[in-house]
Design a protein around this nucleic acid. Structure first.
Lengths: 266, 266
DNA sequence: ACCTGCACTTGACCGAGATCAACTGACGAT
DNA sequence: ATCGTCAGTTGATCTCGGTCAAGTGCAGGT
């Protein structure tokens, strides 16, 4: 199955090791939307022929990012959408009180920059957590093309809606859940998102720091650390720095639902 | 200033008393987008002439809703956007674990139903908290018109983005803040949203129950009750059932920022 | 006027998670 | 190799908000 092969290809590209070979990335840069392994989850889904070529023309293939590189910063004008092709990025915003809130971590195949689609400016910043590659789609040019390609128009709405719902539900659930359920939910979702792009869903590399993860989950770093220790002690995970292996997915799911974690305190 | 007069008109319409006179609402039903007091914050902003007339043709003016009436339910197909013209509505969704989460309360001038813009089905339910009127815009027809009216297209993106950012930030802040800051933030935002449509921003009628408010804020009902009592004791609010008067807006803002609330415990 | 019911308030207690603080271990520079 | 730094872990204590329980007061029905 050719689609599966493409998925394997992107899986390799997404691996941190791959960016060591610049040749691979140059090849990526030349690639068109038609050949992209992410094709069916990205904007060009259900588009082909001349319409696809028109979309392809407004997509900029950007050069690889290194850890710490900023894709865009809050307040940036002329916003663009970005599609993560490999690596991991984080988006964050500055709350009115001045402290930074991490809004999400973004894996290959995911779209970031929707916060700027009012056409004015980005409300969030995006930064690479490791070596990464992205496609850029300037929003004004995208909406021009979309206006005359109904399929793209629809897919754009669909993608926006998908993100809209995801971004809306996640923090709400986070706010109500116990600390353990939040972490389990995050790990579960992380694994699932990897699986959906054909990556290994049991052997995870958390490219964000404990601090960043804690911030995202609305917890303090000490709590996150304790939770990882507990999950390892219970045999649910094996944790070594950023490398996390899921040993008991069923137990993780149960914890994510806020069920019994085997530690009774009363 | 004619615009101010229109704002006063909508202010009266939004008042619970007004719906007792059906004549007023029938008049509302006949109104076109061009005459609407909400014109400049709604979809037709920056559109006029023939384009506005085309938009007007796809807008259904719905009959008044009573408390408890459901505008749409999760899973509904053929989703529409709705603009609140008077009254208050709530949107809610059912979390995977089965319990209901209130996503927001919606005042005149606000748009709900964006969760369904993938064109498939609504992810949330919307229900009137008191007598209310809304305009309905079937999403498929809106996107047809938008495709050929660049100004509407842009405004649609802008509105979606506005909601996107608002819905994204609020729950995140809620998840991190102390209980008092959450309530203060809610009251502050509520007052501000009323002011933006020309309504009184110190004399609030919270049409949702304590239970609904607690659910929205991620707190239990007892905590919300205690917070109201404390705010009244501190002279920040005067609270009488659903009627809340803001006596000290500055203190409320300070509390919303998570600052000292005058009660030292150490 | 008197129940009855429901929304809300108030109080007593307790536990999950924050805070403060000390410790460990990986990694880079000298 | 040794030090310094910084990320992460672990422990002790405190506190905010949840839980459980009792009390209050408005509203609708007979």
């Amino acid at each position: 199955m050719i689609e599966q092969e493409l998925r394997n290809a992107i899986a390799q590209r997404a691996h941190p090791m791959s960016v060591i070979h610049p040749g691979l990335d140059l090849e990526t840069l030349r690639q068109s939307c038609a050949d992209c392994a992410l094709h069916d989850m990205c904007l060009p889904a259900a588009i082909d022929g001349e319409d696809l070529a028109r979309l392809d023309r407004v997509v900029k293939r950007r050069r690889p990012l290194e850890r710490g590189d900023v894709l865009f910063r809050e307040g940036t004008e002329l916003p663009s959408l970005f599609v993560v092709r490999s690596g991991t990025l984080k988006t964050s915003t500055t709350l009115p009180e001045g402290d930074v809130q991490i809004l999400g971590f973004h894996l290959p195949g995911e779209i970031i920059g929707l916060d700027g689609l009012s056409g004015e400016r980005h409300m969030a910043s995006a930064e690479a957590l490791e070596s990464a590659t992205v496609c850029e789609v300037p929003f004004v040019r995208l909406s021009e093309v979309a206006a005359s390609v109904p399929g793209l128009q629809l897919q754009l709405y669909r993608v926006m809606s998908r993100e809209f719902v995801r971004e809306q539900l996640h923090p709400v659930m986070m706010g109500r859940k116990q600390a353990m359920a939040r972490l389990a939910l995050f790990l579960h979702g992380f694994a699932e998102r990897r699986r959906s792009t054909g990556l290994d869903d049991t052997d995870l590399t958390l490219s964000m720091s404990r601090q960043e993860l804690a911030n995202y989950l609305g917890l303090v770093i000490e709590t996150v650390s304790r939770l990882f220790s507990r999950l390892q002690a219970q045999g649910v995970l094996s944790v070594d720095r950023k490398r996390v292996r899921i040993l008991d997915p069923a137990a993780l799911d149960a914890l994510a639902k806020g069920e019994d974690d085997g530690v009774h305190l009363h």
